[in-house]
Simulated scan of single mutants.
Amino acid sequence: MEDNWNTKKCAGCGVALQVENAARPGFVPEAAREREPIICQRCFRIKHYNDASSVAIDQDDFLRLLGGIGSTNSLVVHIVDLFDFEGSMISGLQRFVGNNPVLLVVNKIDLLPKVTNWNRLRNWVQKQAKAGGLRVVDVVLCSARRNIGFDRVVEAIGQLRGDRDVYVVGATNVGKSTLVNRLIADYSDLRRELTVSRYPGTTLDAISIPLDDGRSIIDMPGIVYKSRLSEIVPRETLHALLPDKPLKPLTYQFYEKQTLFFGGLARFDFTAGERQSFTAYLSSGIPVHRTKQERADELYDNHRGEMLAPPSREELADMPPLVRHNLRIPPGGPKDVFVSGLGWIKANGSTGAVVDVYAPKGVKVLLRDCIL
């Protein structure tokens, strides 16, 4: 009887179920083996206790699963996180999906101000996707959590998929499983709920959900990118890093040689340029400290993990060191300094500037056209 367990998959995360080893993914304790649907011990703990064990799928397995899409006739729904747009775009997705159409669903628009020009934002998304080598048939803006724009997502999928399967792909923690759960409610009478968690890497294998018309929604595991700050911070810091309410812009009038610290996670130096303002867009859980550049090194050495937190001093020991990124902001208009997983700092001046950004080694830092 135990041999049959390896042919079953968890209804929450998709991993193969097993009853032999509680330390391995997919374990089902004896008391839960008669439940329907069956979920693994890890999904049970996430759902009921918000406790995720550190189990992750191998990067090669991610690529293997993605590589199989190109040989299918499917609609590919790529979900990205608007707050971490460049960090959550799947690098090289176009070569994996072949000729299959790609619908780009941009989640978490509820984090932006209500006065946002949505047509301008949509044009910005299309431009950034094209620059990233991705050809999309349509762009839909939504918030799965707030149920904003979701009718348009369902409508677009209905128009584009025809009689094809739907593959849902995205990086970890972009709201993919939340959105798939809503799709199931609209397209299938199957009573099923994927595991939804704030922790990256919740879904461990491809999950196929049959639809009423004989086709399927295939929920792919989230791609893990270590270039995102949200992937490398300690779990205790993650809740502070990820915003769950609209961003409140923080604007600072700066002379050159002034510095901002974002907790102990990153540092922003206005190294050279005329007096101008900078606006930070990040989670309210990350405190910002301002100082003179000449005092910044001493301040960080003496107060990181304490005044400059999160993370705590103990948690900092497990994180990569900060490294410097020198960026030259050209004159002519506002630009964003983007730090993957942290947010962005908008340079509002038109005269140009030189800035240094310090972020944990490996985290993506770049200059882009401003999103707002």
Rank of each mutant, 00 (worst) to 15 (best):
I218T: 08
L204F: 09
L179A: 03
V224W: 09
Y187I: 07
K226L: 14
E231L: 03
L204K: 00
G175I: 06
R191D: 14
I184F: 04
R215V: 13
L190C: 15
L211V: 04
D205T: 15
R182C: 05
L238N: 03
P221I: 09
T237Q: 02
D219I: 04
D219K: 07
R198L: 12
V233G: 11
L179Q: 08
T178S: 06
D212C: 14
I232N: 02
D219P: 01
E231T: 13
L179P: 06
V196Y: 05
A206H: 12
I209Q: 02
P234A: 15
Y199H: 13
V196S: 11
T195P: 01
I207W: 00
E193L: 06
G214N: 06
S177G: 03
E231W: 11
I223V: 13
G175E: 02
T203N: 04
T203M: 02
D219Y: 04
L190R: 09
R191F: 12
L211E: 04
I223K: 04
V174T: 03
S177T: 00
L183I: 06
D213Q: 11
R198G: 12
R198W: 05
E193S: 06
G201N: 10
S230H: 04
S216M: 15
L211H: 14
I209H: 01
A206R: 10
L194I: 05
E236H: 13
M220L: 10
A185T: 08
D186Y: 14
V233E: 06
M220W: 01
L183A: 10
T203C: 12
G175R: 00
I207Q: 13
L238F: 07
R192D: 00
V233M: 05
D213Y: 12
S197T: 12
I217Y: 00
E236T: 15
L229W: 00
G222E: 01
P234I: 07
I218D: 00
S197R: 01
E193G: 04
I218Q: 00
D213G: 12
L183C: 03
V196R: 04
S177I: 01
D213W: 05
D213C: 03
T203E: 02
D212L: 08
L238T: 01
V196K: 06
S208H: 14
S216C: 13
T178E: 09
T237R: 08
R182H: 11
S208K: 12
D219V: 02
A240I: 10
R228E: 09
V174H: 02
K226Q: 11
P221T: 11
Y199S: 09
S216E: 14
S230D: 09
I218F: 09
S230I: 12
Y225K: 14
T237A: 12
I184N: 02
L204P: 03
S188R: 08
R215Y: 04
Y187G: 08
N181I: 02
